[in-house]
Design a protein around this nucleic acid. Structure first.
Lengths: 352, 352
DNA sequence: TTTTTTTACGCAATCGTTCCCGGTAACGAT
DNA sequence: ATCGTTACCGGGAACGATTGCGTAAAAAAA
């Protein structure tokens, strides 16, 4: 049941050399004669030798691999980000180890410990909704582990970060709803502790006040598990409709929440956009095929992954400790489709 | 830039013991006195000692981790499968390393080499569309590496396999189209080398002949890259409509192809299901929210992941070489929604 | 020819852990 | 007093690779 590979010793024995000589020949050291090198190289090729990365990791204390922690890969935004991460990482000879926190702080910590104990050279992280205790991150960071946060970042730890302008994204989306003539605009957002939730909520509120509209706390609902639990979204929407002032539009501030809201609204027999408008953050490729096609705020996920990885590799390969960190802020894209097109609006369009 | 953890040596030094004693105390060996054990255990706890898995992997030639290779994690079917895999693996103390082949045989091989060199204890694989050369899989398998194939399996290698009854799934879907009154039923499928493509195509053909319909090769289109390239699906659909006999329904035999077809059909201004019916394999959670809600064949992805992992762990933990392999065949689920409901059919329903 | 330099290689330590051998007490039995 | 147990513990070799240092032989310089 074991699986044994050919080692440097096998080569040494076969060729009557020492392991050091073989090792040096393989790494093209100047102290090895051309003939010996040729001999070793050819034999290594012949028996299909590959250096054992585990032994290397143990010795070098590095693994040429980077760890990624996201809440779930099934989310389009994250899978796209991962593709961006892999593209840069692989081009630079790094491997990517992906792990999911499933919005649980415990699993996040477990994954974190697993990855670090596996000697990943760096980490790219979007924290879970539950994450409160930052001590482990901090310890890691203090001990010199290169970390880049993206999407859901933590302010308290100073390192490179990659995000989008969540405030503006939410502001634009809300403003769009207002322009469409919606009056009682609700929002369904992630747990309030999350950076993205805070920023998007702030954008939503600012858009309302800037347009002379009141902020009604009854129209703001939080989903602690980021929509991982369907009931949670349903509950949020139901509560929204239990209120005295029923909403006529919803701004959903995360991928799962956006499609989650649509699902519930349709189940309730409400017509989008006529009974209720809907817009939200989403990176799903299916949103334009939905009924109705969803107006969305889209993040440059692939690019975010690329940038995060470049920054991480910079940290990893830097000779001396980096103290000058940057936060890259990218732009979101507002895609206007049917789900925010009120009848009135439609009529106007036809008339014009 | 280094990251050093506490080792067994640190404990030994601090406590004035030898590393062997510490190691044994940690593993609760009978040769260590209760007091020493307590001492070691407490100190280990205090300084937050965790055994170095890399050193362990090197020594034990196993890593308590399993490797997964799928073509892409953004695909709902695969991300659901991975969740199933992780649930079982984690419960048994195994970690999961995910990698994507992106439908490229080269990347698949690279990932394979990476995973094995990382001493994964076993592999769970769904092969890429490009995979032709099985020699590396065979070599691995012959040398005792536990492998479980799922979804896209290879007949030539004898090991555990987990699939659905693709023939029946396709047969049922096609039969459903026929019952709905569609006459010229086309199919868009994956590269013909893929097991799932073959089986589903066979099911499609059988349904046609069983219902006295002709098999028209012009109505069968292949997408070599499994729909990873959008143009490819578009091309397939366009060709379908260039034919003398235009199709009035499409059976798409994979996730990306199903939504891909819908996208193209809508772009062409065709109405589904009136101008053309559409049904396909899909595990996306959004299909019922699409316009129109898609009739689909759904696979028990999570369960497949669970079963594949159980089988793999069985192989890994088996004392003697296993020669008795099984192929688990699960059932698909046919979900009938609007995309296959012809006007005629609808009228009938209303009348009844 | 002798001395110095260069060339080309081997020895052994190292990374963190386990485990096979030993070794040394203490203690009861002979 | 001697032997045999039992209970504990340490030394050191592995696992696969790299690397500083030492050194024999060959080449160059004297």
């Amino acid at each position: 049941m074991k699986f044994e590979a050919v080692t440097i010793k096998d080569i040494a024995k076969a060729l009557g050399l020492s392991t050091s000589t073989v090792s040096r020949a393989l790494r093209d050291s100047y102290e090895i004669s051309p003939e010996t090198k040729k001999l070793v190289l050819e034999y290594a090729e012949k028996i299909n030798y590959h250096p054992n990365p585990i032994a290397l990791s143990l010795k070098e204390r590095r693994s040429r691999s980077i760890g990624v922690i996201v809440c779930e890969i099934a989310n389009s935004f994250f899978s796209q980000t991962i593709n961006g991460i892999e593209s840069i990482a692989n081009n630079n000879g790094y491997n990517v180890i992906i792990s999911q926190s499933r919005e649980s702080a415990d699993r996040e910590l477990l994954n974190l410990q697993y990855l670090t104990s596996r000697s990943v050279d760096g980490l790219i992280i979007s924290v879970s909704t539950e994450t409160k205790d930052l001590s482990y991150f901090r310890e890691l960071h203090d001990r010199g582990m290169p970390i880049v946060f993206f999407d859901r970042i933590v302010d308290e730890i100073e390192t490179h970060k990659v995000i989008v302008d969540n405030f503006k994204g939410a502001y634009d989306a809300t403003t769009h709803l207002i322009k469409c003539g919606y009056k009682r605009i609700a929002t369904v957002c992630n747990a309030a502790v999350l950076s993205i939730a805070k920023e998007r909520l702030a954008g939503y509120k600012a858009a309302l006040t800037d347009n002379g509209m009141e902020i009604n706390e009854a129209l703001i609902k939080y989903c602690q598990h980021g929509g991982m639990i369907t009931d949670e979204v349903e509950e949020a929407v139901q509560e929204l409709f239990k209120a005295r002032q029923k909403p006529d539009a919803i701004f959903a501030s995360a991928d799962k929440l956006t499609t989650g809201c649509l699902r519930i609204l349709k189940a309730k027999g409400l017509s989008v956009p006529d009974d209720i408008g809907l817009i939200g953050f989403s990176n799903s490729e299916l949103t334009e095929l939905l009924d109705p096609p969803l107006s969305i705020i889209k993040q440059p996920a692939f690019e975010m992954g690329e940038i995060a990885t470049s920054l991480l590799l910079q940290l990893i390969e830097s000779k001396r400790p980096v103290t000058d960190f940057e936060t890259r802020v990218l732009s979101t894209e507002l895609l206007i489709r049917e789900s925010t097109k009120k009848q009135k609006q439609k009529a106007k369009e036809i008339a014009s």
